[in-house]
């Protein structure tokens, strides 16, 4: 019974989602939309689990003075600071809305905004910017003429890289056309083939999960 109830719930909700996709009946859409809302609400509560996990692991490391405990302390301090700052901002906006005409007005230049714009955003952009250098290092490692497939990859990559910059057209007028052809025809064909295979795999996996043939959420 302990294993059957989750499988039945999964099958019931899954079948309704499938019916919603194919059906134009208003009743089915209403029920499916309601089930989706339940899912959203349940997932929203789960953020508490993540925060508790973070606190549990990092606080234990700080108290036991494990290696790099300073960074873990910094993580906890940052997390609570942003939570408190965000809570204060929300409280001030709610108070303003209740004392005013009832409309929600965003308060600017708060501590939360400062930390978001001047701490979080630059840090996030920094990690994203690493991609540029990692692309170069990955390309340097991967584009080697070790065998026929690697040689094809190398030749195609060189043509596309040169064809996409103005100097490529200056070297040879055919480079821009060739890279355009490569990206439009063989590349698109390959991508579509992979997408078709992946989509069929998704259908198979989805049906296996919905009908309880595979129960990844219920191992044991």
């Amino acid at each position: 019974m302990r294993n059957r109830i989750p499988v039945l719930i999964s099958a019931f909700v899954g079948i309704f989602m499938i019916l919603k996709y194919f059906s134009t009946a208003a009743t089915i859409k209403r029920v499916a939309d309601e089930l989706e809302q339940w899912g959203v609400v349940t997932l929203s509560f789960s953020i508490v689990l993540g925060v508790l996990n973070l606190i549990k692991i990092n606080l234990k490391a700080v108290m036991e003075r494990k290696k790099d405990w300073g960074y873990k302390l910094l993580l906890l301090v940052s997390m609570f600071t942003m939570m408190i700052a965000g809570g204060i901002k929300w409280y001030r906006e709610e108070t303003l809305a209740q004392s005013g005409d009832g409309s929600t007005t965003a308060i600017k230049n708060t501590l939360f905004d400062f930390m978001f714009d001047h701490v979080y955003f630059p840090l996030s952009a920094t990690i994203f910017a690493l991609l540029a250098f990692y692309v170069a290092s990955a390309a340097f490692r991967a584009f080697r003429a070790k065998n026929i497939h690697a040689t094809l990859l190398l030749v195609a990559a060189v043509i596309v890289m040169i064809g996409r910059v103005p100097v490529g057209g200056a070297i040879w007028s055919g480079f821009p056309w060739l890279q355009e052809w490569l990206m439009t025809w063989p590349n698109t064909a390959g991508q579509r083939a992979i997408q078709i295979g992946a989509a069929i795999g998704m259908i198979a996996t989805g049906l296996r999960v919905i009908f309880g043939i595979e129960k990844p959420y219920l191992k044991g």
Binding site: S46, P216, Y217, K219
Partner: peptide, 12 residues
């Protein structure tokens, strides 16, 4: 990256 995924991964 997600709390629910963590919970299920723990059980698995």
């Amino acid at each position: 990256r997600r709390s629910v995924v963590l919970t299920i991964s723990e059980e698995v």
